[in-house]
Amino acid sequence: MARPSYSRKAVLDMIPREQAGYFEVPGAHLYTVLHTAADPLARVLLVGPFAWERHSSYVPWVRWARYLAEKGVECLRYDYRGIGESTGKFDHLSFQDWAEDVQLLAGWLDSLAPEAPLALHGLEMGALLASQAFRAGIGDALLMWAPPDNANQALRPALTRRVAVDNMFRYGDQRKGVEDYIRRLETEPMEIEGYQWSGRLWQESFDLELPADMRDGRKMATDCARPFRTVQLDKSVEPLIKGSRYVAMNPDLTELFADNFEWIAGALAVPSGGQNGCGR
Protein backbone atom coordinates (compact mmCIF):
# COMPACT_ATOMS: atom_id res chain seq x y z
CA MET A 1 0.00 0.00 0.00
CA ALA A 2 1.37 3.39 -0.92
CA ARG A 3 2.25 5.58 2.01
CA PRO A 4 0.57 8.96 1.99
CA SER A 5 3.02 11.76 1.34
CA TYR A 6 2.89 15.04 3.16
CA SER A 7 4.77 18.24 2.60
CA ARG A 8 7.25 19.22 5.29
CA LYS A 9 5.00 22.09 6.30
CA ALA A 10 2.04 19.74 6.66
CA VAL A 11 4.10 17.43 8.85
CA LEU A 12 5.21 20.31 11.03
CA ASP A 13 1.63 21.52 11.30
CA MET A 14 0.63 18.15 12.70
CA ILE A 15 3.08 18.46 15.58
CA PRO A 16 1.68 20.56 18.38
CA ARG A 17 3.78 23.66 18.85
CA GLU A 18 3.60 23.26 22.59
CA GLN A 19 4.00 19.75 23.89
CA ALA A 20 3.06 19.39 27.53
CA GLY A 21 4.13 16.29 29.39
CA TYR A 22 5.55 14.81 32.55
CA PHE A 23 9.21 14.03 33.01
CA GLU A 24 10.09 11.48 35.63
CA VAL A 25 12.64 12.39 38.28
CA PRO A 26 13.36 10.59 41.56
CA GLY A 27 10.12 10.52 43.53
CA ALA A 28 8.12 12.86 41.30
CA HIS A 29 7.00 13.88 37.84
CA LEU A 30 7.99 17.28 36.51
CA TYR A 31 5.47 19.15 34.41
CA THR A 32 7.21 20.22 31.21
CA VAL A 33 6.18 22.20 28.14
CA LEU A 34 8.37 21.93 25.07
CA HIS A 35 7.94 24.87 22.68
CA THR A 36 8.98 23.34 19.42
CA ALA A 37 10.60 25.09 16.48
CA ALA A 38 11.17 23.79 12.99
CA ASP A 39 14.88 23.11 12.48
CA PRO A 40 15.83 24.80 15.74
CA LEU A 41 18.94 26.92 15.61
CA ALA A 42 19.37 26.50 19.35
CA ARG A 43 17.68 25.22 22.49
CA VAL A 44 17.02 26.96 25.74
CA LEU A 45 16.13 25.47 29.10
CA LEU A 46 13.98 27.99 30.95
CA VAL A 47 14.47 27.73 34.69
CA GLY A 48 11.54 29.74 35.97
CA PRO A 49 10.81 31.64 39.12
CA PHE A 50 10.21 29.88 42.40
CA ALA A 51 6.89 28.83 43.99
CA TRP A 52 4.89 31.99 44.77
CA GLU A 53 6.79 34.07 42.19
CA ARG A 54 5.74 31.55 39.54
CA HIS A 55 2.09 32.60 39.77
CA SER A 56 2.59 36.27 39.13
CA SER A 57 5.16 35.86 36.34
CA TYR A 58 3.52 32.96 34.52
CA VAL A 59 1.92 34.93 31.68
CA PRO A 60 5.06 36.86 30.57
CA TRP A 61 7.21 33.75 31.08
CA VAL A 62 5.02 31.75 28.69
CA ARG A 63 5.04 34.68 26.25
CA TRP A 64 8.86 34.64 26.32
CA ALA A 65 8.91 30.91 25.54
CA ARG A 66 6.55 31.46 22.61
CA TYR A 67 8.63 34.38 21.38
CA LEU A 68 11.78 32.25 21.37
CA ALA A 69 10.05 29.37 19.58
CA GLU A 70 8.80 31.74 16.88
CA LYS A 71 12.36 32.91 16.37
CA GLY A 72 13.54 29.34 15.84
CA VAL A 73 14.80 28.63 19.36
CA GLU A 74 13.26 25.50 20.81
CA CYS A 75 12.74 25.84 24.52
CA LEU A 76 11.62 23.84 27.47
CA ARG A 77 9.92 25.32 30.51
CA TYR A 78 8.88 23.34 33.53
CA ASP A 79 7.61 23.47 37.09
CA TYR A 80 9.98 22.67 39.93
CA ARG A 81 9.49 19.45 41.85
CA GLY A 82 6.59 19.85 44.30
CA ILE A 83 5.42 23.12 42.74
CA GLY A 84 2.65 24.01 40.30
CA GLU A 85 1.72 21.13 38.00
CA SER A 86 4.65 18.97 39.05
CA THR A 87 4.15 16.27 41.64
CA GLY A 88 6.08 15.90 44.88
CA LYS A 89 5.71 17.34 48.34
CA PHE A 90 7.17 20.80 48.64
CA ASP A 91 8.01 20.49 52.33
CA HIS A 92 10.08 17.36 51.70
CA LEU A 93 12.23 18.99 49.03
CA SER A 94 15.43 20.99 49.06
CA PHE A 95 17.50 23.16 46.76
CA GLN A 96 19.51 20.05 45.97
CA ASP A 97 16.39 18.43 44.45
CA TRP A 98 15.61 21.53 42.42
CA ALA A 99 19.23 21.69 41.21
CA GLU A 100 18.92 18.07 40.17
CA ASP A 101 15.80 18.96 38.15
CA VAL A 102 17.86 21.43 36.10
CA GLN A 103 20.58 18.89 35.42
CA LEU A 104 18.20 16.12 34.40
CA LEU A 105 16.12 18.34 32.13
CA ALA A 106 19.16 19.92 30.52
CA GLY A 107 20.44 16.42 29.76
CA TRP A 108 17.14 15.42 28.24
CA LEU A 109 16.80 18.60 26.17
CA ASP A 110 20.35 18.22 24.95
CA SER A 111 19.73 14.63 23.93
CA LEU A 112 16.84 15.68 21.66
CA ALA A 113 19.28 17.31 19.24
CA PRO A 114 22.88 17.18 20.42
CA GLU A 115 24.03 19.19 17.44
CA ALA A 116 22.08 22.31 18.48
CA PRO A 117 23.72 24.48 21.15
CA LEU A 118 22.02 24.72 24.52
CA ALA A 119 21.56 27.80 26.65
CA LEU A 120 20.30 27.98 30.21
CA HIS A 121 18.08 30.87 31.15
CA GLY A 122 16.99 31.46 34.72
CA LEU A 123 14.72 34.02 36.31
CA GLU A 124 15.28 35.04 39.95
CA MET A 125 15.72 31.81 41.97
CA GLY A 126 15.87 30.00 38.65
CA ALA A 127 18.91 32.11 37.76
CA LEU A 128 20.74 30.78 40.81
CA LEU A 129 19.93 27.18 39.94
CA ALA A 130 20.88 27.74 36.31
CA SER A 131 24.18 29.34 37.33
CA GLN A 132 25.02 26.29 39.45
CA ALA A 133 24.36 23.94 36.56
CA PHE A 134 26.35 26.16 34.21
CA ARG A 135 29.25 26.21 36.60
CA ALA A 136 29.10 22.39 36.61
CA GLY A 137 29.65 22.44 32.85
CA ILE A 138 26.09 22.28 31.56
CA GLY A 139 25.08 24.49 28.63
CA ASP A 140 26.88 26.63 26.10
CA ALA A 141 25.61 29.96 27.38
CA LEU A 142 23.85 31.31 30.46
CA LEU A 143 21.33 34.12 30.68
CA MET A 144 20.16 35.33 34.09
CA TRP A 145 17.30 37.70 34.75
CA ALA A 146 17.17 39.39 38.14
CA PRO A 147 19.32 36.90 40.03
CA PRO A 148 19.48 37.49 43.78
CA ASP A 149 22.88 37.21 45.49
CA ASN A 150 21.63 34.13 47.28
CA ALA A 151 18.41 32.15 47.65
CA ASN A 152 17.63 33.70 51.00
CA GLN A 153 17.19 37.05 49.27
CA ALA A 154 14.45 35.43 47.20
CA LEU A 155 12.74 33.88 50.23
CA ARG A 156 12.83 36.87 52.54
CA PRO A 157 10.28 39.11 50.75
CA ALA A 158 7.67 36.34 51.00
CA LEU A 159 8.31 35.97 54.71
CA THR A 160 8.10 39.73 55.14
CA ARG A 161 4.74 39.80 53.37
CA ARG A 162 3.43 37.09 55.70
CA VAL A 163 4.58 39.10 58.73
CA ALA A 164 2.94 42.25 57.36
CA VAL A 165 -0.39 40.47 56.81
CA ASP A 166 -0.32 38.89 60.27
CA ASN A 167 0.46 42.24 61.86
CA MET A 168 -2.51 43.98 60.31
CA PHE A 169 -4.90 45.08 63.05
CA ARG A 170 -2.35 44.07 65.69
CA TYR A 171 -1.07 46.79 67.91
CA GLY A 172 1.79 47.28 70.35
CA ASP A 173 3.25 44.08 71.84
CA GLN A 174 0.97 41.90 69.73
CA ARG A 175 3.00 42.75 66.65
CA LYS A 176 5.82 40.35 65.79
CA GLY A 177 8.91 41.04 63.73
CA VAL A 178 10.56 39.06 60.94
CA GLU A 179 13.18 37.82 63.40
CA ASP A 180 10.44 36.28 65.59
CA TYR A 181 9.17 34.36 62.59
CA ILE A 182 12.68 33.20 61.67
CA ARG A 183 13.15 31.87 65.22
CA ARG A 184 9.82 30.05 64.96
CA LEU A 185 10.80 28.65 61.60
CA GLU A 186 13.83 27.04 63.20
CA THR A 187 11.59 24.86 65.35
CA GLU A 188 8.45 24.26 63.29
CA PRO A 189 7.30 24.38 59.65
CA MET A 190 5.38 27.46 58.62
CA GLU A 191 2.93 28.16 55.83
CA ILE A 192 4.14 31.03 53.62
CA GLU A 193 2.05 31.99 50.61
CA GLY A 194 0.54 28.53 50.47
CA TYR A 195 3.78 26.53 50.80
CA GLN A 196 5.06 24.78 53.92
CA TRP A 197 8.50 26.12 54.66
CA SER A 198 10.84 24.10 56.79
CA GLY A 199 13.69 25.42 58.90
CA ARG A 200 15.98 23.46 56.61
CA LEU A 201 14.75 25.38 53.54
CA TRP A 202 15.52 28.65 55.28
CA GLN A 203 18.97 27.55 56.44
CA GLU A 204 20.00 26.08 53.12
CA SER A 205 18.88 29.19 51.29
CA PHE A 206 22.01 30.99 52.52
CA ASP A 207 24.22 28.40 50.84
CA LEU A 208 22.79 28.71 47.34
CA GLU A 209 24.73 31.70 46.08
CA LEU A 210 25.36 33.40 42.79
CA PRO A 211 29.03 32.88 41.89
CA ALA A 212 30.94 36.07 42.62
CA ASP A 213 32.20 36.47 39.06
CA MET A 214 28.66 36.40 37.73
CA ARG A 215 27.36 39.29 39.78
CA ASP A 216 28.62 41.83 37.29
CA GLY A 217 26.71 41.14 34.10
CA ARG A 218 29.03 43.12 31.89
CA LYS A 219 31.89 40.71 32.44
CA MET A 220 32.37 37.58 30.43
CA ALA A 221 33.41 34.41 32.18
CA THR A 222 37.15 34.16 32.42
CA ASP A 223 37.47 30.56 33.53
CA CYS A 224 35.98 29.22 30.32
CA ALA A 225 34.95 30.45 26.92
CA ARG A 226 31.23 30.13 27.49
CA PRO A 227 29.36 33.42 27.59
CA PHE A 228 26.92 34.47 30.26
CA ARG A 229 24.84 37.54 30.86
CA THR A 230 23.14 39.05 33.88
CA VAL A 231 20.17 41.35 33.33
CA GLN A 232 18.85 43.28 36.29
CA LEU A 233 15.12 43.93 35.97
CA ASP A 234 13.23 46.77 37.54
CA LYS A 235 9.57 47.11 38.45
CA SER A 236 8.73 48.29 34.93
CA VAL A 237 8.57 44.64 33.86
CA GLU A 238 6.06 43.72 36.56
CA PRO A 239 4.61 41.07 36.77
CA LEU A 240 7.62 39.26 35.28
CA ILE A 241 9.15 40.07 38.63
CA LYS A 242 6.93 40.72 41.57
CA GLY A 243 6.05 44.32 42.20
CA SER A 244 3.42 46.05 44.20
CA ARG A 245 1.60 48.20 41.69
CA TYR A 246 -0.84 45.64 40.38
CA VAL A 247 -1.41 47.57 37.17
CA ALA A 248 0.04 45.54 34.31
CA MET A 249 -0.87 41.88 33.88
CA ASN A 250 0.48 41.41 30.36
CA PRO A 251 2.86 44.27 29.57
CA ASP A 252 4.53 44.78 26.24
CA LEU A 253 7.98 43.28 26.78
CA THR A 254 8.99 43.17 23.13
CA GLU A 255 12.07 45.30 23.74
CA LEU A 256 13.32 43.06 26.55
CA PHE A 257 12.59 39.94 24.55
CA ALA A 258 14.25 41.23 21.37
CA ASP A 259 17.38 42.35 23.19
CA ASN A 260 17.79 39.04 25.00
CA PHE A 261 17.04 36.99 21.90
CA GLU A 262 19.79 38.90 20.10
CA TRP A 263 22.15 38.07 22.91
CA ILE A 264 21.23 34.35 22.89
CA ALA A 265 21.64 34.17 19.11
CA GLY A 266 25.01 35.88 19.31
CA ALA A 267 26.22 33.88 22.29
CA LEU A 268 25.35 30.53 20.80
CA ALA A 269 27.03 31.36 17.51
CA VAL A 270 30.34 31.27 19.39
CA PRO A 271 31.90 27.85 18.81
CA SER A 272 32.02 25.70 21.89
CA GLY A 273 32.37 22.06 22.71
CA GLY A 274 34.96 20.52 24.88
CA GLN A 275 37.87 22.76 23.91
CA ASN A 276 37.71 25.07 26.87
CA GLY A 277 37.84 22.75 29.82
CA CYS A 278 34.24 23.39 30.74
CA GLY A 279 32.94 19.94 30.10
CA ARG A 280 31.29 20.33 26.71
Binding site: V33, Y58, V59, A248, M249, N250, P251
Partner: peptide, 17 residues
Protein backbone atom coordinates in the same frame (compact mmCIF):
# COMPACT_ATOMS: atom_id res chain seq x y z
CA UNK B 1 -7.97 32.06 27.23
CA UNK B 2 -4.70 33.95 27.60
CA UNK B 3 -4.05 32.62 31.10
CA UNK B 4 -1.57 29.95 32.17
CA UNK B 5 -0.71 27.62 29.31
CA UNK B 6 -3.77 28.34 27.18
CA UNK B 7 -3.70 30.23 23.91
CA UNK B 8 -5.58 33.46 23.49
CA UNK B 9 -5.22 37.14 24.00
CA UNK B 10 -5.02 38.94 27.30
CA UNK B 11 -5.35 42.66 27.98
CA UNK B 12 -2.29 44.58 29.04
CA UNK B 13 -3.82 45.95 32.22
CA UNK B 14 -5.55 44.26 35.12
CA UNK B 15 -8.35 46.78 35.00
CA UNK B 16 -9.27 45.72 31.45
CA UNK B 17 -9.05 42.06 32.41
Amino acid sequence: PGLGDSDGELPEKWQDF
